[in-house]
Design a binder for these strands. Sequence first.
DNA 1: AATGAATGAGTATTCATTCAT
DNA 2: TATGAATGAATACTCATTCAT
Lengths: 208, 208, 208, 208
Amino acid sequence: MARPRANRKALILKAAIKVFARHGFARARTAAIAREARVAEGTIYNYFKSKDDLILTIFEQTWRDLIQALRAALDPIRDPIQKLAVVLMTVLDLFEADPMLAEVFLVELRQSGKCFSNQPMSVILEFLDLLEAILKEGIAQGVIRKDINTKIARGLLFGAVENIVLGWLLRKTHPDLFKKEKPYTLAEAKETLMKLFATGFFVTPSHR
Amino acid sequence: MARPRANRKALILKAAIKVFARHGFARARTAAIAREARVAEGTIYNYFKSKDDLILTIFEQTWRDLIQALRAALDPIRDPIQKLAVVLMTVLDLFEADPMLAEVFLVELRQSGKCFSNQPMSVILEFLDLLEAILKEGIAQGVIRKDINTKIARGLLFGAVENIVLGWLLRKTHPDLFKKEKPYTLAEAKETLMKLFATGFFVTPSHR
Amino acid sequence: MARPRANRKALILKAAIKVFARHGFARARTAAIAREARVAEGTIYNYFKSKDDLILTIFEQTWRDLIQALRAALDPIRDPIQKLAVVLMTVLDLFEADPMLAEVFLVELRQSGKCFSNQPMSVILEFLDLLEAILKEGIAQGVIRKDINTKIARGLLFGAVENIVLGWLLRKTHPDLFKKEKPYTLAEAKETLMKLFATGFFVTPSHR
Amino acid sequence: MARPRANRKALILKAAIKVFARHGFARARTAAIAREARVAEGTIYNYFKSKDDLILTIFEQTWRDLIQALRAALDPIRDPIQKLAVVLMTVLDLFEADPMLAEVFLVELRQSGKCFSNQPMSVILEFLDLLEAILKEGIAQGVIRKDINTKIARGLLFGAVENIVLGWLLRKTHPDLFKKEKPYTLAEAKETLMKLFATGFFVTPSHR
DNA sequence: AATGAATGAGTATTCATTCAT
DNA sequence: TATGAATGAATACTCATTCAT
């Protein structure tokens, strides 16, 4: 009788991320995940209810880890602007460190019926709420303009970040699609993003 | 001589958008599309190579129509800022007028292997290029700041818009997910977006 | 309005032989036959009830032509041995002149449900009866041994000829399957066949 | 650990022979094979790549078994004539014992693209080579006439035997096609065949 | 007769999930 | 727990045939 290797669950999850990233959720085979995790197919079902449960768990767990990390990192910071910078940095660092996770996140999860069921949405909303709280804090402190709808503003931030990472990722994985362009680093992206969200596209007295 | 009944192709395409929006691409049945279009299943394959071809065609055709409309609308305008506003307005109008199309666009198409194959990416890039051209024009005219990477900035714009529309759509189709929130109109969203991209989040001399 | 081109039926039949020979009956498409015959798909059904009817017609017509030709050729001949030689020559000549017809005949038609339904079998039996009549004539004349079952003997002749032609055909169409062998002509085959059926494999006083 | 129930593969193969014999390859349903084998449809695909693979396996395995049996039976025999008799007997016995197998063999397998691909042809050639070796042995011993092309002669033998079995089979399965005839036994057929191949059709000094 | 667009019945195969060991 | 053989539901697509023109 085989003894359970430690961390079977984490092992399977990691394998699933790899396979989902490689083939996409729909074309990913549970057999491939099992092989990647060096586990029997049936074993997956000792830890997860279904293939859907696998991607949902990846999604949820990553968000939870991210939010927890964010709360810790944000706690000592007072300046809302600084807080936004930290959020951005944390997110970009996460995906830069684990591009396969980024792929699964950015590409696979928008399929309705997964992303938009209550379970994963509630954790996205938690992240959005965190963003909104920062905006509101900034408004209260008089640092951030108050003539904006914070619900809209937070989504705007979210989408911008998401697209930045997606663009960066695609330039890495499908360089042929962007033949004439030179890739950018996430650091550059972060800088541009902060500039634009801080003071906008326009040339105004505020930036020379 | 048997002539094809007119509209067949457009009819099928419209039916497909409806069914894809309702069930998602993966769970959509070709039988349902045929029924919706009041056409035999086989007829679909007289006009489209496969189910994939169907969604790809929707994707590509919509982009092409959009880009064409944009070029026409932008042509008489000189002010780059005004141009950005027109782009935004055109996109939001399109999706507001056809929420099912928006659903298919925003949700189904990011699945890799469809979205990231050359075919659909090239038309997305065309749109991104159009955005970038406006930014560059603004920079040349001295209206838009020049200390930004336009490749990054255009993606940032794109993502922000995409997320705005997605948020608006979800609030319409899954109101339960946003129980405590009041929905916003695309008009509101447009305003906030323009404000933020114009002069940024920060409170500066430029806005009171 | 298009005037019927002469020989539409024969034209279609010829195209069908070509397509059946190329792809086999099961994989042959009616569309391909129509294209080959430069005719609309629907036109085929003005002349033939179905795809099955096509191959059945080819089968039956070829046999009828062959039998008719045989009767004419055999009529003036008295010697049964000579008659057998003429039968053999006529059959081999037919297939040598039209290898595509041979392919369809030898390969496609054995599929049960076609070959073994009454229609085509009755014409095969007509051919077998013709063979048997020659054998019986030979027996009556004392030229052919009488200690054989003529039903069996005629099938034996038939199978031998069939296989000779099949072997010859395969060596032409799939030479790679017989790499080490040098092909033989139907003339050689006829000679060997006549020798063996005349006096057998054994070395006896009758052949040195 | 789940062990495969024994016999599965053989069980499915047997069921396939039955169903192919009953309906013909093209009209045979995988569902019917599964039902016949009392196995789930999917199980078939644990053992065979496809429906084609099923009939190819039947074909190849039967030939291999036959050839093996022949080698064993022929080994102790010296007389080439006797060897030919043994070959004939072995083949006829096989098909007499398993008429369904005979049906599949004789009827279904000539369809090009199956029979004429390298795989099954190579095993047929092995059988033909075996026949030819006997003929050559007979020639070397001076028992069999040397003025024949052994390539042609072996095909002639093959075809004759094939047709004998086919005729016998048809008389069993479609007696209506041969209304006026009395069926023959394979024993009779063997005798006639041996006589004819030994000393031929002609009345000569060698047979009274 | 000729056309060819429309039709829709028909089916092999896949693969997530189960369960006997 | 772990295994992996067995399961069987589920479905896009083909193509012979029809029929309105």
